[in-house]
Computed example of a mutant assay.
Amino acid sequence: MLKNTWPRDRHVGPGGGLYTGPGGGLYTGPGGGMSTGPGGGLYRGLGGGLYTGPGGGLYTGHCEQPYRSNLPPREALLEYLARNRLEHLLCLLLQCG
């Protein structure tokens, strides 16, 4: 597994996008697609999947070193954002008016 990349398929077995163990798209451990820690897909700090500044997954401007990670599967991400009351991020992804 490459650093800060996660599988996006619908496979539930080891290495699959819906796998919750190490290397899976729904792994919540360090560096996993569903991790809120540094380098994780749901991390809101510098370089994370939910970071809105330069190098972050939600940054809208030009960046010399853009975020190159994949977020966890869309359904899981939307559910996580709603469950944790991150409506502003949910609205960004759903393009609310």
Results as ranks from 00 to 15, higher is better:
17 G>S: 09
54 P>D: 15
11 H>L: 09
48 G>D: 06
82 A>H: 06
34 M>C: 14
90 L>N: 05
40 G>S: 08
29 G>V: 11
76 A>I: 10
54 P>E: 15
58 L>R: 12
86 L>K: 10
21 G>L: 07
87 E>D: 15
58 L>N: 05
81 L>M: 02
37 G>R: 07
21 G>F: 04
71 L>H: 14
68 R>L: 11
74 R>P: 10
76 A>K: 08
68 R>I: 05
60 T>P: 10
25 G>F: 05
53 G>P: 02
63 C>A: 13
50 L>P: 03
82 A>L: 12
40 G>Q: 01
9 D>G: 11
21 G>W: 00
60 T>C: 05
92 L>V: 05
11 H>I: 05
71 L>G: 03
33 G>I: 06
60 T>W: 01
87 E>P: 00
23 G>K: 02
7 P>N: 05
30 P>Q: 15
76 A>T: 13
82 A>F: 09
31 G>Q: 07
14 P>V: 06
84 N>V: 14
86 L>S: 02
78 L>T: 03
69 S>N: 12
60 T>R: 06
13 G>I: 05
35 S>N: 03
11 H>Y: 10
16 G>K: 01
51 Y>I: 00
29 G>K: 11
84 N>K: 01
27 Y>A: 00
92 L>T: 09
59 Y>C: 03
56 G>S: 06
16 G>S: 08
82 A>G: 07
51 Y>M: 01
50 L>W: 02
44 R>N: 09
43 Y>K: 03
56 G>P: 13
26 L>C: 10
36 T>G: 07
49 G>H: 04
